[in-house]
Design a protein around this nucleic acid. Sequence first.
DNA 1: AAGGTGCGGTTGTCTTGGACAAATGTTTGA
DNA 2: TCAAACATTTGTCCAAGACAACCGCACCTT
Lengths: 323, 323
Amino acid sequence: MEKTDTSSRNSGLRQASAVSAAVLPAESMLSISAVERDTGLSKDVLRMWERRYRFPSPLRDKHGERIYPHDQIAKLRAVKRLMDRGYRPGKIIGLHLDDLNALGTAPAGALEHSTEIQEVLSLIRGHQLQELRQRLNQMLMKQGLLRFVVETVAPLTTAVGEAWVRGEFAVFEEHLYTEQIQGLLRNAITSAQAHSTAPRVLLTSFPTEPHNLGLLMVEAALVVEGATCIPLGTETPAPEIVRAASAHRADIVALSFSAAFPERLAASGLRDLRLALPRNVELWAGGSCVRRLRKAIEGVALVRSLDQLGSMVADWRAVHGPG
Amino acid sequence: MEKTDTSSRNSGLRQASAVSAAVLPAESMLSISAVERDTGLSKDVLRMWERRYRFPSPLRDKHGERIYPHDQIAKLRAVKRLMDRGYRPGKIIGLHLDDLNALGTAPAGALEHSTEIQEVLSLIRGHQLQELRQRLNQMLMKQGLLRFVVETVAPLTTAVGEAWVRGEFAVFEEHLYTEQIQGLLRNAITSAQAHSTAPRVLLTSFPTEPHNLGLLMVEAALVVEGATCIPLGTETPAPEIVRAASAHRADIVALSFSAAFPERLAASGLRDLRLALPRNVELWAGGSCVRRLRKAIEGVALVRSLDQLGSMVADWRAVHGPG
DNA sequence: AAGGTGCGGTTGTCTTGGACAAATGTTTGA
DNA sequence: TCAAACATTTGTCCAAGACAACCGCACCTT
């Protein structure tokens, strides 16, 4: 119907012209939905920024709907990337694209890691998937699962995270690393699984906490100790955790919190969960978020480092018997 | 801020009470963002239906914001499920939940699963983790990876999803199942990995699509065929997919879409990604969302079932040569 | 110096109701 | 029987306003 629609629209009902439109010449223009997809900024945010900061300032198609030129989209992407690293929009949205990219570039302060970790980092950077797999596997074999987790995976994950924050790693490079480690750990966990003994540990995280690596590291450490793990994956609502603990007769519920998780939420969530769980079920919490918590929480054991887990399991067995 | 939020609220800034609220008694009420995530119906659609059809009719919190009781959410899910099968909202939105479910249920015993699948379902229901692991492993060994994925994992995952929709499975039971299958598949994929051959396939999903099982099934099927997989995990923004494809010299980019993923987003996202990728890189899309798409998308191969993958890889090799 | 506590500015999501294009369904005409 | 024209259904976009949760900062206490 429409003859001069030039936008490559995202909207479902209006997408008929998207293909043809996109073939037309000046088509680095996107609709608000497309920009939402590409940048990760919601439509509401895009409109709000326009109102508040006068940026972005999209053109309008003949029907009055926003169309974003590619240069504005590029700037939006740059702003989003910086925001993910902790910058606040009001501070940076006025800057030029070049300045934004300059901000992203690492300031210089290279952190010190062991040579082995440096090597792995450069394999990721070089997109050498095959070699990366081999190298990690080799390290696992040499160190054994527990040392591998504590001395290699944990610092490596931190290093990757920091490199990403500094803009040295692309999103997809971090994704690839996570995926490789996950495969490796899951594999090792299966192999290391002995016949089940007490304690029975339920592993998961709260909603809004999608990071699985921490949980896998804990599972690996626990499996090495001969404990029985009941992994629920990430983001289990608190009432479900309670039901699962009862259904699986868990002795311990262990939760993982990444650095990005808000401290307040962690603390209040743990307190409430503690109240909802039977008294004889222990509640353990670990991860970089928890490590920062100042106050202890009544009835919650804080796991401040992975190599603590062994003695915590031993303590549990000393109190409750070998099961 | 993040779109992958799964708390009872989507909004980053207002999530303070999310975890604790979930523990409190009367909290099967969800915010509009949470319902959007759960049902796959956008906020705009939820508000529009309320205006037009008088359903849903959420309560309001003390601040005047919508809160949806769980029974309305159940009905919304049922309606969405039927819409995915081609029903139109206006026709069915007035019906009762029971009638909706009756509509959805296949008339005869088409819903019957093989005895083996029934057995696995009952192991999940009975929380027999050990036995579940053994049984699945046994089936994998007996059937081989490819048949296991196509004949067991795929229907089993559908069955678990349907049971969850009908309220027969708890959230944590579905989580546990997912986690077990993930471990199993990752393990098998590692074992089945031969030396790498063409094509090189980049595997991932779009943002807001967090389901990993589909990707793992595809990876398993591809590894069996001797293809080289570059798994990026879930939720990679489109520009990152393009960068990753170039960095890893991918021949094919394969995306997975679960049933909950909005069709229009899938279609427009695929179109835009197609335009952004070099012409010599193929784009494949699979998953139950894509299976429903009526129109083909120019330059995108739709994978309608897992056992197609073998011949698709063969076709690719026929065109591009083995090397 | 270290560790709270309180305050104001910043920021994202929610609200309402109106408008309209595209998809689907129905009738008409050859 | 098929296709074109019309009618209905349906989802997305728009605008401006409201407000709660967050942030950084200053202040105060120990």
